[in-house]
Design a protein around this nucleic acid. Sequence first.
DNA 1: CAAGAAATATAGCAATGGCTATAAATCAAC
DNA 2: GTTGATTTATAGCCATTGCTATATTTCTTG
Lengths: 138, 138
Amino acid sequence: MTEMDGQVPERFARAREAQSVALLEDYVEMIGDLIAELGEARVADIAERMGVAQPTATKAISRLKREGLATARPYRGVFLTEEGADLADRVRARHRTVVELLVAVGVPEGVAELDAEGIEHHVSDETLAAFEGFLKSR
Amino acid sequence: MTEMDGQVPERFARAREAQSVALLEDYVEMIGDLIAELGEARVADIAERMGVAQPTATKAISRLKREGLATARPYRGVFLTEEGADLADRVRARHRTVVELLVAVGVPEGVAELDAEGIEHHVSDETLAAFEGFLKSR
DNA sequence: CAAGAAATATAGCAATGGCTATAAATCAAC
DNA sequence: GTTGATTTATAGCCATTGCTATATTTCTTG
């Protein structure tokens, strides 16, 4: 045990909070990718890439709209708000940094990609800055 | 984009799976800690340390019993099965390694503890091995 | 050992994130 | 421009993980 015992509940609360944001981040990044590649993000494409059924994607998109990250008209494509696009950029950059960090400490490329998907959502700004510093100073 | 585009849905599915196991791991580790410290794990203590209400802890313990990781009789303490104790040991070791790795690449101790709580559940055996190798070879 | 305090369990609610089945809207092609 | 195919939305289900309120059991103490 460490000297931080008193903060244990807060640690878990923080991890839970991060998890609740993770899905939003994944969807926003994916929508950003689709728009960049295809000019628009269709529900069917989003569902396929996320590996979920189409109604699941529709429901997630509703939440994105509620949170002000995306806009969509019924039976039309999905688009990101400025806030959503900013978030997508940050998520993408963080993902790259996490993969690079993992590779830098010896994790095989493919494994790094797989693990980064889960890890990235729990990397705070401070840790991300440390990762960048480490990568630069090698 | 990388050369792994075809596996994107599997990546997310894997991250989701890891998330569903994370809570079990946290509870098992915490119960192990409590037994080591106090000789037994009471529901009230588990709830307090996990930062959740007592019925939430009770419900989680039911799941642990269902999964064969813990045993408990009503109104009595909670104990780990052999499988649960093994899991607790592995989780604890992995947690330490993740914190050490983070510190090794420049993350401040306190931040490392916070972030590790979320990160550790997404660290595969292969990545963990790479972390250990990196730490040893410094 | 009886009563009150403390701990645990249960009931029931909400949000999230899955799913299938089906309805409704759009698109394509004749 | 209709019709059939495709796409999206909706309805309704399940499990999980939280919560509060309340019942029940155990513990403690006079």
